[in-house]
Every structure is written in C-alpha cells, then in structure tokens.
C-alpha cells in the first residue's frame, strides 16, 4: 500500500500522471485484448469461420507452415527441420565452456556445408529444391546466418586492414568500410540484384538468393569490421609487446594472441549486429524475395483471406519481437558475465 502511495501518488502531478496513463492504457489495452484473445476466432479452416468480430487467428494457423517454410515442397520440409535443429546445437556449442573455440569453429564450418547441401539437395537421393522456393522464416534465418558467416572473415580482414600501418591497405579498407556503412541496405540489395550480373562474365548467372546473400554480407561485413575493430582497440599494448618478445610474427600474433581476446570482447557488439541484421533481412522483400515478412505481406493479398492485415502484422511482430528480445537479453547477460562494460 505504501509502495503504491510512494510510486504512483506521491504528489498531485504524480497522481494526475498515473490516472492519465491508467486511463489511456485501459482505453487502448482492453479493446486490444478483447480483439486478440477474448473474442478472437481460433478454430476452423476458412475465412467464413471468422465471424465473431475479433482477430481471425484461423488465417495464421492455416498459413503457419507456409510462413515457416515458404514454398519448400511439403514432402521435403523435414530437411529444413533437421537444419534448424543442427543450428541450435551448433549455437549452444559456442556457449559450452568445455569445447575449444577451434573445435567449435570447425564444427560450424562442417555443419554449414552440410546444411547447404541438405537444403539444396540434388545429391544422393535428395531431390533438388530451387532456392526460388525457399521462403518464410527459413529464408530469414538462411539470410541472417549465411550473411553473417560470409561476412565474418571479410570483417576480420577489414578490421585488421583498417588498423594496419601500411597506408595503402589502411586507406582502402577504411574507404571500403565507410562506403557500405554510408549507404542504405536497400541500395546495396538493388546493387547486388541488378548490378552484380553486369560485373560477372556473361553467362555466369548467379542465383538470386546468392546475390542477396552477397549484398547482405558486404553490408554486414562493414558493420562487423567496426565492431571487431572496437575489440582490437581494447587490447592493451603490452599484449603486442609480449607476443613480439616471444618472436611471433604479425599473423601468428593476430591469430593466437590478439584475435582470441578481441573476439571475446566483441560478443555483445556481435549479438547486437546479429539483431540488426535479423531485422534488416526484411528488406529483401523489396527485391521480390519472400522472407518471413515478405510471405506474410504477400498472403495479405490472397483473395480468400482479405482484410486481415492487422492479424498478419501482429503475428509477425510477435515472432520478430520474441527473437530479437531474447537475443538482446542474451547480449546483456554475456556483457555482465564477461565483465566487459562498454560505453
């Protein structure tokens, strides 16, 4: 009771604010909860099953598989499931204290190759599935993880290059990084989808997904490079001197002494970049790909399910929010855990 008095009604202005906010919340939340839960339709299979005036979740339930797998053939969807499970396992590997970083990286590389073959197929008894058919959450994850994995090596080289003592290397790396950081992702995607075919020898057609991946990873690479550079800057000079005193050369110093420390510093920044990238992959719908948001957006124009924009967006928002929010919590945890506090 005294808590309520102190935190809500300690003065006139305070009481007024509390009442006002309470009123607005009630005014906005009550109808929303009513719409979304109480008078929503959950059962049925057709548009006409939604007649209560609340949200039509029937549509989301009916379309759920498509939102997850896009147009991936129904009989082959187990392959996507396997890849999903593999990714989760590989992810926990990183947070497993007993596994050495080298082993984890090796497992990752192998797992990724395996995933790619499993998803595309065309080898052994697996039927080939065109990337054109990939879509929904699966495509979103492929773009995020793929973009990140391709971007990572580039980012490390760029970060090292930007701190190099060789002026030409430093200037070109800086320019390259700032170029991608200075332009919107959408122009990078346009560039990748329209200009990339012009850059390559005639006839070397590049798959649309691959083009998007290249665009995404160039863009993400520049941002990652800056994150990694931040980590490199946090390493004290004594470490370089110690390595030099042991007679290690530049690359050995970097690989065995500096990078392992720097990368530990950058994990929170890395996770934030992943969150940003995960949200940014939605932009591929502008170049005509059906990622999670893209496929929901497309399904809103379905003649049989018209007028359900609110349901679609609320569902999409809920999924995106849960994933991004968990990642951001993880980032805060890691930061507190490793005792690395950055401004």
């Amino acid at each position: 009771m005294s808590w309520v008095r102190e935190n809500l009604f300690s003065s006139w202005g305070n009481t007024l604010t509390s009442c006002f906010i309470g009123f607005v919340l009630a005014w906005a939340l009550v109808p929303f909860v009513d719409w979304a839960v109480i008078s929503a339709d959950w059962g049925g299979s057709k548009r006409t099953d939604c007649n209560s005036g609340g949200a039509c979740w029937v549509y989301v339930i009916q379309r759920f598989d498509q939102f997850m797998y896009g147009f991936y053939p129904v009989s082959e969807r187990w392959r996507v499931d396997v890849v999903g499970i593999l990714l989760v396992v590989a992810l926990t590997l990183f947070f497993w204290p007993r596994v050495s970083a080298r082993l984890a990286l090796l497992c990752w590389a192998l797992a990724l190759f395996f995933c790619w073959f499993l998803l595309t197929g065309g080898v052994l008894a697996l039927p080939y599935v065109e990337t054109r058919l990939w879509g929904g959450m699966m495509l979103t994850v492929v773009l995020t993880v793929g973009g990140l994995v391709l971007a990572f090596p580039v980012a490390i080289l760029l970060a090292l290059g930007r701190r190099s003592s060789l002026p030409l290397v430093r200037i070109s790396c800086t320019a390259f990084i700032e170029l991608w950081r200075g332009v919107p992702l959408i122009t990078v995607l346009f560039m990748a989808s329209v200009m990339l075919p012009l850059f390559l020898p005639d006839g070397a057609g590049v798959d649309k997904l691959l083009r998007a991946l290249i665009g995404v990873s160039l863009f993400a690479g520049a941002y990652l490079a800056e994150v990694i550079r931040g980590g490199l800057q946090a390493i004290l000079r004594g470490q370089y001197e110690a390595a030099a005193a042991l007679g290690l050369g530049y690359w050995k110093t970097m690989t065995y002494v500096i990078m392992p420390q720097a990368l530990r510093h950058v994990i929170p920044g890395l996770l934030n970049t992943i969150i940003a990238l995960f949200k940014d992959t939605t932009l591929v719908l502008i170049i005509g790909m059906f990622d999670f948001l893209g496929i929901i957006q497309a399904s809103l124009n379905d003649q049989e399910w018209l007028g359900l924009a609110a349901e679609g967006y609320v569902f999409a928002a809920l999924i995106y929010w849960s994933i991004c929010y968990s990642l951001s919590r993880l980032s805060i945890k890691v930061e507190q855990h490793s005792g690395v506090h950055r401004v």
Partner: peptide, 19 residues
C-alpha cells in the same frame, strides 16, 4: 523502447500504412 526497437522497421511501416 523494448517494443519498438525489437520489431523490424519495415514491419512497423507496413503496420502504420496498411493496417
């Protein structure tokens, strides 16, 4: 803060525009 920054901007634009 926690709601808006964890939802893709494009989705928010769509929401305001279409919904």
């Amino acid at each position: 803060v926690e709601t808006l920054r964890n939802i893709p901007l494009l989705l928010q634009i769509f929401f305001w525009y279409f919904a």
